[in-house]
């Protein structure tokens, strides 16, 4: 059966420009303006997983992102990779969001897409973590908001057999753990945080770029989430005000070291160095 798939995309600063990144000491957020962005690398694995699912079973793939307006470019790339449609949730009110407010906003966006298309999502793929924040929280939070089963660090997905009772297919899923993997069987709808090992993302083709020109890219702001359709946003749950995470102090550690000039014969100096090291707990016993 064909599946409706959503892929969450995050634009992250291009690692080539990491040296230009600063942190706003007041808001304690990364200052991203003026730094070229790219698709969060593991999000491409999520896109690839969605593409493979569509190639195998048919269906529809929508990309969704909560980001500043210039993330259009990033979403065009996902369309060029093969997604059918893209949605950008962009509003000043969404700014300053932590993972909870981000996942809430994405959840509302996904619900709105479902409402407009009249079809529920069967899969929501996310990259397992972002290259900048690396909290790895959004996919699980999104699963909770949507009340879908969710798994994180998924590296393999395989269909098992159609479920006779509900007609829904079961999927065998594997997640990475420290010394091996865990195997799960899940039934749609599912939210999956995809790991890098899942696949090798396809390259964007020239034909894909040309097709992307004519694919829909919708931008929604806060005002587009009207209360009357039952999917309005709670303004207390978005942006900075919806973010319970409060970063602590941000400071550059003082790495200055004090030096002491030792005088005497080399033997005396070595003795002195050893004494200081021993007194600081450094073991100087050599075992053959």
């Amino acid at each position: 059966m064909p599946y409706n798939v959503a892929v969450c995309i995050k634009p992250v600063p291009d690692p080539k420009y990491y040296d230009r990144i600063t942190i706003d000491p007041q808001r304690k957020t990364i200052v991203r303006s003026g730094i070229p962005t790219m698709i969060n690398p593991v999000d491409k694995n999520a896109v690839e997983a969605a593409m493979q699912l569509r190639e195998r079973f048919g269906g529809y793939v929508a990309a969704i992102s909560m980001a500043p307006p210039d993330a259009r470019e990033i979403l065009r790339e996902v369309l060029a990779m093969g997604a059918d449609a893209a949605y950008l949730l962009s509003d000043r009110a969404f700014g300053g969001a932590d993972t909870l407010a981000t996942s809430y906003t994405l959840y509302k966006g996904l619900k709105k897409i479902e409402l407009e298309r009249g079809l529920p999502f069967d899969f929501v793929f996310c990259g397992c973590e972002s290259a900048d924040g690396a909290t790895a929280q959004v996919s699980s939070q999104l699963g909770e908001w949507l009340a879908f089963p969710h798994l994180w660090n998924v590296f393999s997905i395989e269909s098992v057999s159609p479920d006779s009772s509900g007609g829904r297919e079961s999927f065998k899923l594997r997640t990475k753990i420290e010394n091996g993997f865990m195997e799960w069987v899940g039934r749609t709808p599912l939210v999956l945080g995809v790991s890098r090992e899942m696949n090798k993302p396809r390259f964007t083709s020239v034909m894909g770029i040309m097709k992307a020109k004519n694919k829909p890219l919708t931008v929604w702001g806060l005002a587009d989430f009207a209360e009357d359709d039952g999917h309005g946003m709670d303004s207390g749950l978005i942006g900075l005000s919806g973010s319970p995470t409060q970063p602590g102090e941000i400071f550059t550690p003082d790495l200055k070291r004090s030096g002491e000039t030792l005088t005497g014969t080399p033997e005396e100096i070595v003795e002195r160095i050893f004494a200081v090291m021993r007194s600081n707990g450094v073991s100087l016993v050599f075992e053959p």
């Binding site: 790339e77 060029a80 390259f203 964007t204 083709s205 894909g208 770029i209 040309m210």
Partner: peptide, 12 residues
């Protein structure tokens, strides 16, 4: 825009 995307895709 498409030419810029093309360059980026080929570069990758």
């Amino acid at each position: 825009e498409e030419q810029k995307m093309l360059r980026k895709a080929i570069r990758e």
